[in-house]
Nucleic acid binder design. Structure first.
Lengths: 343, 343
DNA sequence: ATGATAAATGTAAGCGCTTGCAAACAGCAT
DNA sequence: ATGCTGTTTGCAAGCGCTTACATTTATCAT
């Protein structure tokens, strides 16, 4: 079987030079209509598709942006990415996804790999990472955007929400319902500014009302069901028992609900439970889970736009020198059945 | 800022030729230890990373395999991909993920794009697609593997399970519990052999016992909660009412459960519900969802291995001419609370 | 020591594409 | 016709890397 057709094959078939074929492919309006049609016919005839490597080498662009997320298994990232991809696809850009498993070293390695593959831009989750990584990013002069996080004075462009404020807001709603004995099933804070900010948010809300969140009332665990159950079980054993379990995300909250029941208690009559993210299961649980809605899809879409604006200096409005604006998205507390008044 | 270092920069710094540097990077054992160290030092010093495009162009390999899945939002694909990626990463291969949104035309387009990017291999979901796509695949001589599907006489290498048999098996369990009035909330069968096989499986089980699955007792809908609720609502309005809703996957089943309750009925006392996939929510629902466990992670891992074996002819045992074996994975019916005896 | 053999390294020819520059051409006022 | 401008096209030089082949250097039995 003959091998893949090249630009030259097409050029020969159409009776033009390779330069013209290249122009037909990349900048059709620079070619006379008649010539263009002849070339397009040859392209179709031969089934020509440009060779990615050749193009990348010659133009030093790849039409690719990379994203490093902690895991694909969490629906929130999947949803955000899906939206991002839709937006990028529309601009003819491909999304390259890598996972870090919530591990900073793995993340750094994945970033390296993506840079090696010549991504034109990068999407990263959260802000906490080794300064060396940021240096690397700057050295490669690759535009990047941080998502799932937002902070007023962050030195980097972010498209996300204020985890601290959202958690504080949620804790206030909890406090409003009379809860005083509060415990937290938190995510692992190591290398994770979001998990850490959520704890700080809850603590701030409590301190504003003269309460303290004891270190023993906070357990960190992986964002999975079983660890969530385990952590909640431990917290429920405290005397006096907490009246509410504030959880780092919905998955942990689902685990916490199970633990409450396993302890022979009811949600929310005996113990209230709250989540964070508003993934699909939040509404499916019985009782439905009180949580914080995060606009994942919108976040993905806006992150994509932010990056696209900086990718193509021509299309990107001004000369690209201006700092692209960070974007703060609003979250919304959803009061649902799993949060009741303090017993 | 100086631009990215090239092979030549490293060669100059280490006082060797570019060929030697290339060997250090790709086949270290072909280089004398002393020389290798000198080169490695230069690499580290300059922060050299090979240019992907250059490498792809010269070697005609990319160290990349592509996967086209219907959507990232369904946890089953996410989980399978995650496992696949782990396996590929270990072999130094990168996974490129694209989504088709359950649309055959989009899928074909994504395949084209991936081929254009020079993927060395391809993972595709299911078997149903235009023959032209298979022709394209053969013309590019790119090895591919089909997952989430398995059929004894498929002409293509598959790593998956027998959707027909699994659904028939499930239906038999349902029939064993005395159900006779059976309705199905199925996935959309257009371009989707898995959804179609599951319906056929249920129908076969019924016919084996002299029952018929009326066309009106089957509703196809998108694999999302709301359409599932809607479809179930319609089916529950039938007179006489079905005693069980067999659903195309767990998401639809979750919707069906809600619809049953919304109709003022109980699961499973009034209407039983079954799912398919055994995603996380299956166990979290109240009552827990009877479903078919699919070894998604294992499937991803085995698919990766299958592809890897054909990627590198050197490592792949024989001369690569032999047809790589398809692999059939076992599924398991999980009896859980949502399936009760017929009322 | 000496040649035969094997290992290490260098030379240089591309891989397929983009793009600055120059040549060819078309359109148009003079 | 003539020169002018602006558009369309071709020429050819790389982009950074791999690899067949040639050359140099090390190894070793004799």
């Amino acid at each position: 079987m003959r091998s893949r057709p090249t630009l030259e094959d097409v050029a020969r078939a159409a009776g033009v030079s390779t330069a013209t074929v290249s122009r037909v492919v990349n900048t059709p309006d620079r070619v006379r209509a008649e010539t263009r049609q002849r070339v397009e016919a040859a392209v179709a005839e031969l089934g020509y598709a440009p060779h990615f490597g050749g193009r990348a080498l010659a133009s030093n662009r790849t039409g690719t942006v990379g994203a490093v997320i902690p895991t694909m298994e969490n629906a929130i990232f999947a949803r955000g990415l899906q939206a991002m991809q839709e937006e990028l696809d529309a601009a003819g850009v491909t999304l390259l996804v890598a996972t870090s498993d919530y591990d900073a070293a793995k993340e750094a390695h994945q970033i390296q790999t993506l840079l090696g593959r010549g991504v034109d831009g990068l999407v990263l989750i959260g802000e906490a990472r080794d300064p060396a990584v940021y240096e690397l990013l700057e050295r490669f002069e690759v535009p990047f955007v941080l998502v799932w996080t937002w902070r007023a004075d962050s030195p980097w462009p972010c498209v996300g929400f204020d985890n601290f404020a959202a958690a504080r807001d949620l804790a206030e709603r909890v406090l409003d319902r009379g809860h005083r004995r509060i415990a937290m099933v938190a995510g692992v804070t190591r290398d994770n500014d979001r998990a850490e900010a959520r704890i700080r948010g809850v603590r701030a809300a409590m301190e504003a009302r003269g309460l303290a969140l004891a270190p023993s009332a906070v357990v960190e665990c992986d964002y999975r069901i079983e660890p969530g159950i385990e952590a909640a079980r431990g917290l429920l054993a405290a005397v006096p028992r907490p009246t509410v379990l504030i959880c780092g995300n919905d998955v942990l909250a689902a685990g916490a609900c199970r633990a409450v029941r396993a302890a022979g208690l009811r949600v929310p009559e005996d113990v209230s439970v709250t989540g964070f993210d508003n993934i699909e299961i939040a509404e499916l649980l019985e009782p439905p889970l009180a949580t914080v809605h995060v606009p994942h899809r919108r976040m993905g879409r806006m992150a994509a736009r932010n990056l696209l604006a900086r990718l193509d200096p021509a299309a990107g409005g001004a000369c690209g020198a201006e700092r692209p604006a960070s974007l703060r998205l609003e979250t919304e507390f959803l009061a649902r059945g799993s949060l009741g008044p303090a017993p």
